[in-house]
Amino acid sequence: MKISSKARYAIQSMLQLALSPDARPVTLSQLTQQQGISPSYLEQLLAGLRGQKLVSGVRGPGGGYRLAKPADKISIEDIILAVHEEHVTRPPKSQHEDSLYNDMWWDLSERLQDFLTGISLADLMDRDDVQQQLHQQRLLRGHQPETMVEHRHHRA
């Protein structure tokens, strides 16, 4: 299964917001610089995420975007559905013999959705590879890095 570029950028953006120290807003410029995508494209993604109340905008100096709810309450499935306009609905029953296959594909799709619903943004944040990347980014920016354990407890 391939996750669309749109969904990947949205997940990466949400992860950036979730990893922001002290839940400080992250500017559009910071988000686009990190991911190497255009501001207009990212604004479209953020509009979908805002529409589903996954992110909120903060106006004024020091403004930007932040998570609208805790990372453990946002599933990967929530993010994917927020940026894809089409809604997933079960196809109508076919009167042809291929209806067995329609049911089989639908059941597989439902299992994949259940799997993605079971993975939260917080789960991604706890991955060692994400923690190592965060550590590297902080070293490059001259910040004093937190240990992985401190970061996990700070978030809780």
Rank of each mutant, 00 (worst) to 15 (best):
M1D: 05
K2S: 12
S4D: 08
S4W: 11
K6C: 01
R8K: 12
A10T: 02
A10C: 08
I11G: 00
Q12G: 09
Q12C: 07
S13W: 01
M14C: 15
M14P: 14
L15G: 12
Q16C: 09
L17F: 07
A18Y: 10
L19R: 06
P21D: 08
D22C: 06
A23K: 08
R24C: 08
R24Q: 15
R24F: 04
V26I: 02
L28S: 07
L31Y: 03
L31M: 09
Q34H: 07
Q35L: 14
P39F: 00
P39W: 00
S40Y: 06
S40C: 06
S40M: 10
Y41H: 12
L42D: 02
L42K: 04
E43M: 08
L45Y: 04
L45Q: 07
L49I: 00
L49P: 01
R50L: 05
R50F: 09
G51P: 02
G51Q: 12
V55G: 01
G57V: 07
G57H: 11
R59K: 11
R59H: 11
R59P: 15
G60S: 08
P61Y: 04
P61E: 13
P61W: 02
Y65N: 03
R66V: 08
L67G: 01
K69E: 05
A71V: 01
D72I: 02
D72S: 10
K73E: 15
I74C: 05
I74Q: 04
I74E: 03
I76P: 00
I76F: 05
I76S: 04
D78W: 00
L81G: 03
V83A: 07
V83P: 08
E85V: 04
E86A: 09
H87V: 09
V88G: 04
V88L: 13
T89W: 15
T89I: 14
P92C: 04
P92H: 07
H96T: 05
Y101R: 14
W106V: 06
D107Q: 11
L108E: 15
L108T: 13
S109I: 06
S109R: 12
R111N: 07
F115S: 14
T117L: 11
T117E: 10
G118W: 07
G118S: 15
G118L: 00
I119T: 01
I119S: 00
A122F: 12
A122W: 09
A122G: 06
D123R: 05
L124S: 02
M125Q: 10
M125V: 02
M125G: 03
D126R: 01
D126V: 00
R127T: 00
D128P: 13
V130W: 15
Q133E: 07
L139G: 04
L140N: 13
H143N: 07
Q144P: 03
M148W: 12
V149I: 13
V149Y: 15
E150L: 04
R152A: 11
R152G: 04
H153C: 05
H153I: 06
H154E: 14
A156I: 04
A156C: 06
